[in-house]
Write a protein that binds this DNA or RNA. Structure first.
Lengths: 231, 231
DNA sequence: CATAAATGTGGCAATATTATGACATTGAAA
DNA sequence: TTTCAATGTCATAATATTGCCACATTTATG
């Protein structure tokens, strides 16, 4: 879990970073909103700790920008005043929690834990479907279900993953090595021919429903490729 | 909106009461858990502010009792120590927020507002109706009762929860881990096989009434899934 | 066309995962 | 206290999946 700390006081950054790292989080810190935003617009951390008042871009503005990218990253505010809490935790800004300086590091850690827990619960309860469609193929990731021409294909997890990886990059060849790395957890090593076997089973299952299925192409000497839809 | 303050320091009760009343809340206060519980068991307020340590029945015990009556009343803890926050905000106790003494009254007011807002959001998201129907399955959440084809299924609480979680997300695969997180309070760890056992008992009970019941599917290598009704 | 390398395929043994029954423990109610 | 339902865990059986071999077929290339 990666946490970003944005505060203009070096000592405070140091203190928090130390505590967070000690708790097993990965931590990066920025001294103002400008620097933080530069990084965030590339890749968001899993949680953000923001000082309200900072030179350059303050916490409120940074928060607004973050919320445009993600509605869900937990954001915890730090402040030395207590007369802006309303706005911060209100819908206008969209902070998730708030702590007044000076604060107890222990309490900070606990509040972070609570935020993560709440976040996790939200994710687990969300019913948002992630559906991927490519020509006649439809994948429901959360349901672990695949359809060809609206017919359910009964796949094992390995087959599902292979189909997912291949179809997500239509037209691009995936070597057996790449496929294995994606399908298997790090450290497991199997023969490269094993991929062939899974591809065989995958093709067979779909062709049993539609014998004209030929979207999974073999690229001799390289690997496999999911055919790019013509239209 | 009625808020109850439970604290053994008269001055603090007075201060908080004054502020709350001034903000337009109706406020009642108690000097220990015993007195508060006597009142709560008759009628719960809309929000509870609890001191952790009190003579007679302390805040933690009172909170546990309240949670048996209502899972949703927001409970905000006050404490002079910061080493129990973990447990308090964890699911074991089930507090919703926490403030360390001494605290700013303004911050208290804001946190109360946030709790009410969160509460409201939860209520709006949760199906207002107490009854959930999915195909032949009917669940009465409030009564912890389940029906299959209008016949009552005699379920234990654990079984009911599992059925609820699975059927609330028809089609989606729930891993054992996710199921455990939802069924058990945080911190309790049981073997993942235990879920299997409960699923077994759940299936068996329903199949005893309708042997064609097969809505709970096993997704090999992943978890369980409640079958999506064909429509 | 001949050859070697690469890939397809069927089947089987090895693994991994899940189902189930039995049993001990817990906790609440009588 | 006794009783009984509920629960967690374990051992074992039942399944599903997987890896890989052996052999067939295809492909690239001289």
């Amino acid at each position: 879990m990666k946490i970003s700390v944005v505060d203009d006081e070096p000592d405070l950054r140091e203190t928090i970073s130390y505590a967070l790292t000690h708790e097993g989080y990965v931590c990066e810190s920025f001294r103002d909103g400008i620097h933080a935003w530069k990084a965030f617009s590339q890749k968001l951390p899993d949680l953000v700790i923001l000082d309200v008042s900072m030179p350059q871009m303050d916490g409120l503005e940074l928060c607004r920008r973050i919320r445009k990218i993600s509605e869900t990253v937990p954001i915890l505010f730090l402040s030395s005043r207590d007369d802006e809490i309303d706005r911060i935790l209100g819908l206008e800004i969209g902070g998730d929690d708030y702590m007044c300086k000076p604060f107890s590091v222990r309490e900070l850690l606990v509040r972070i834990k609570v935020l993560f827990r709440r976040q996790k619960a939200r994710q687990e309860n969300s019913k948002t479907e992630d559906i991927y469609q490519l020509g006649n193929l439809i994948l429901h990731y959360g349901k672990y279900m695949a359809f060809w021409k609206d017919q359910l294909i009964e796949l094992t997890v390995t087959e599902f993953l292979l189909l997912k990886i291949l179809s997500q990059n239509p037209g691009f060849v995936k070597t057996r090595e790449v496929l294995m790395n994606q399908v298997y957890p790090e450290g497991t090593y199997v023969s490269a021919r094993t991929i062939d076997t899974h591809i065989k089973r995958l093709r067979k299952k779909i062709q049993k429903m539609d014998e004209s299925f030929d979207e999974i192409e073999t690229v001799y000497g390289v690997g496999y490729r999911y055919k790019q839809p013509s239209a």
